Amino acid sequence: MPVSLSLAMIVKNEAQVLGRILSQVKHLCDELVIVDTGSTDGTQALAESFGARVFCFEWIDDFAAARNHAFSHCSSDWILWLDADDLINESHQQKLLDLKHSGLNAEIDAVICSYQIAFDGQGECLISMPRERLLRRAAGGSWQFPIHEAFVLPDEARVLNRLDIAVEHHKPAQYVERSSDRNLKMLMRLIEQGDQSPRNWYYYGKELRQHNRPEEAIEAFQQHLRLNQTEPISQYQALHLAMLCCMELHRYPEALSLGYQAIQINGSRAEALLNLGIIHYRHQDFNIAIPLLNAATTCQKPDAGLIVEEDYSWKPYHYLSLCYEGLGQPANAIEAALKAYPDIPDKQVIRENIICFAGKLK
C-alpha cells in the first residue's frame, strides 16, 4: 500500500532551475513544501505555480535550521528532501515511485540513496556519496550543523540502502563560485569564533583545498584528526585528503606517511591504496606500487563517505599497466590496460599504450 510523501526544499533565487526538479517530482509527492530564505527573482511564484506551499524563513547562516523549518511544515508519512539544482532522471523517478508504492513502511525509518555531485562532459558520474534521502516523519531525528548539514537519525533507526537510486546535483556555473565562497566564509567565521567541532574543521579543510590553499588545508585536516577520536570514516578521509594536498605540494614523504596511516584505519577502501601506488610508481618503486594497486582493484565501492568513481574502476588498472611496463613485463601491462579500457574516458591513451606494450613482446 502506498504511503504519503512530502517534498521538503529550501531555496533562494532558484528560478533558473526550480521548475526542472519540481516537474520531475510533482507526480511522486503528495505535497510540495518550499521554504524560501529571501528570493527576489520570482522563485516563490514559480513554486506556487506547481502547487507548492511556500513559507518564508529569515536566513540566519544556518542550513540545518532552514531545513528543520521545512520539515516542520510537512504532513505526509515520509519526507523526500532535495535542492533546487538537483534532478532525477526518469528511470530513477520510477524506482522512487515503486518504492513509495511497495517499499516504505513503519519497519523502515530512512532510505539511503546515491547523491551524484560531479560529472564528465558525457554526463557520466565522477563523484558520488550516499545520503539519507527519504525520512519517515514519525521516526524522529533532525537536521544538525549550520554548514554542510546532515540529518541525524535516532540511534535505533532502521535504514534501507538503495544506492541504485540516484539524485544528480547539477549546480549552474554561476552558482558554483557563489556557494563555494559562501561556505568558506561561514566556516572561517565559525573557526575564528573558536569552534572545536571536528566536522567543521574537516569541511574547512575541504573548502581550503578547493580554494587552492593546500598548506592551510593540511593544518585544518590535522586539527580535525586531533579533535576526532570516534569517527573512522572522517578520520580516513581527512588523512587521504591531507595526503592529496601533500602530493600537490610535492611533499611525497609526508604524503606516504599520511597514506599508510589511512590504510591502517581502513584498508578496504581504494583511495589511499591507489594514491600510495601512484607515488611509488612516480618514484619507479614498481615492486612496492604493484601490491598496493592490486589491492585497490579488489576494493568494493563503499556505502559511506565520498566516492570518486575512477578510483573504483579504471584508474588502479591504468597505473598497474604502467608499473608492469616499467618492470619490463609487457604481457602483464597489456592485461591490466585491457581492464582499464572499458571505463577510462580517454580510450586513445590506452590504445596507444597497448600498441607500445605489444611492440615489446618477445
Rank of each mutant, 00 (worst) to 15 (best):
Thr40Cys: 07
Ala262Leu: 08
Val3Phe: 06
Gln222Tyr: 05
Thr298Asp: 09
Ser234Ala: 04
Arg20Ala: 12
Leu241Gly: 03
Leu184His: 11
His240Asp: 03
Ala220Tyr: 06
Ala220Asn: 08
Gln174Pro: 00
Arg136Cys: 01
Val17Ile: 12
Phe286Ser: 11
Pro345Asp: 12
Arg20Gly: 11
Glu335Pro: 00
His69Thr: 07
Gln284Pro: 00
Trp59Val: 08
Tyr312Asp: 11
Cys245Leu: 09
Pro253Glu: 11
Arg162Asn: 08
Leu306Ile: 15
Asp62Met: 00
Lys100Glu: 05
Val33His: 04
Ile355Met: 01
Gln122Asp: 11
Phe145Val: 12
Gly328Tyr: 06
Val159His: 01
Leu273Ala: 08
Leu97Thr: 01
Asn161Leu: 13
Glu124Asn: 15
Tyr324Ser: 07
Val167Trp: 00
Asp86Val: 02
Leu292Gly: 02
Arg213Lys: 11
Ser76Ala: 12
Phe145Ile: 13
Leu244Pro: 00
Ser142Thr: 10
Arg199Ile: 10
Val17Pro: 03
Glu90Ile: 06
Met247Phe: 00
Ala333Val: 08
Asn353Ser: 06
Phe357Asp: 02
Tyr203Glu: 04
His224Cys: 14
Val11Arg: 10
Glu48Met: 11
Leu274His: 15
Asp83Met: 06
Lys339Gly: 02
Gln116Thr: 00
Gly121Leu: 05
Ile108Gln: 02
Gly267Glu: 12
Asn294Trp: 05
Ala139Ser: 15
Asn353Arg: 14
Ile265Ala: 09
Leu22Arg: 10
Asp30Thr: 04
Glu192Thr: 01
Asp77Trp: 02
Ile350Pro: 02
Asp181Val: 11
Glu219Ile: 12
Met188Thr: 04
Leu293Phe: 07
Glu215Leu: 10
Cys323Met: 01
Glu219His: 07
Leu227Gln: 04
Val11Ala: 10
Gln222Pro: 00
Arg133Trp: 00
Cys246Ser: 13
Ala358Pro: 05
